[in-house]
């Protein structure tokens, strides 16, 4: 007969032993008072825990925890998500169309217009998010800065736009097939009225890229700027004048090693 271990005693209390084992443990308990005392203590613990919290299950369930209500709410939210997505696609089409109109002399949309379209679509998708607007919150700005800098393989500082009345919410990493490295960082800011501004930052698309472009997209304005190190598209529901003023601050801070921005 194998020994009766503490685990076996515990399993006895918790009802986890097959009948044959139970009989064996009961025989052991009859001749081992210390084990019997252990068992009694464990049983008292279980009883007391059930006395303490058991009655909660008999309380009436509050209305806001009704599965029916929650399921209906979820159905509504799903429909809204689809509508948001549809709206985003429309805006993306507008953005691409805008890019097409800005294409200038060349036949294919130039890299700046394609990056603006990417930036605007990312802007549209993520500014609508309340809870998951950013991947890394702005209060962890140092981590964000080093993380995004590593990923983009360029030195990236998080611009402080509080002088412009914009709070830094945070950032996320996005795919950007158009540029070397294939990655973009999106940084998000919010003003007192809840309007959101995003910076879409990528490594420089190359020496032949345009330096500067402004696109008016209905509600939003997008401003693109590139040098030999990075490109940045600012998108916000602001006028072109206001966006240009903000751009000065952004470009001066984004990459401290680069020369001052001139429009």
């Amino acid at each position: 007969m194998s020994a009766v271990t503490r685990d076996t005693l515990m399993a006895y209390v918790d009802g986890g032993l097959p009948p044959a084992e139970r009989t064996r443990v009961e025989a052991y308990l009859a001749e081992t008072p210390e084990a019997a005392a252990d068992i009694a203590l464990m049983q008292r613990q279980t009883d007391a825990i059930r006395t303490l919290y058991g009655p909660v299950a008999a309380e009436p369930v509050p209305a806001h925890l009704s599965v029916d209500t929650l399921a209906r709410k979820a159905e509504g939210a799903r429909r809204r998500t689809w509508m948001n997505l549809a709206a985003a696609l429309v805006l993306l089409a507008v953005g691409l169309g805008g890019g097409w109109m800005l294409r200038g002399q060349s036949d294919t949309p130039n890299i700046a217009d394609r990056l603006i379209a990417e930036a605007v679509s990312a802007h549209t998708v993520f500014v609508a998010e309340k809870r998951h607007a950013v991947e890394v919150a702005g209060n962890d700005s140092e981590h964000l800065s080093s993380w995004l800098s590593n990923r983009l393989q360029t030195n990236l500082a998080m611009p402080d736009l509080s002088a412009q009345g914009l709070d830094f919410l945070g950032g996320r990493l996005l795919p950007a097939p158009e540029v070397p490295g294939g990655r973009a960082a999106q940084l998000m800011y919010e003003d007192a009225s809840g309007a959101r501004l995003t910076l879409y930052v990528t490594p420089s698309p190359g020496p032949n890229a345009p330096r500067y472009e402004l696109a008016n997209l209905g509600l939003d304005t997008a401003l693109f700027w590139a040098d030999n190190v990075i490109s940045c598209t600012i998108t916000a529901p602001y006028s072109a004048e206001k966006l240009q003023a903000i751009a000065h601050t952004v470009f001066a801070q984004l990459n401290p090693t680069m020369p001052a921005y001139e429009s």
């Binding site: 919290y53 058991g54 909660v56 299950a57 008999a58 309380e59 369930v61 925890l65 009704s66 599965v67 029916d68």
Partner: peptide, 9 residues
Amino acid sequence: EAAVPALRR
């Protein structure tokens, strides 16, 4: 729904 009381407990 049937599991809600136990989850609350």
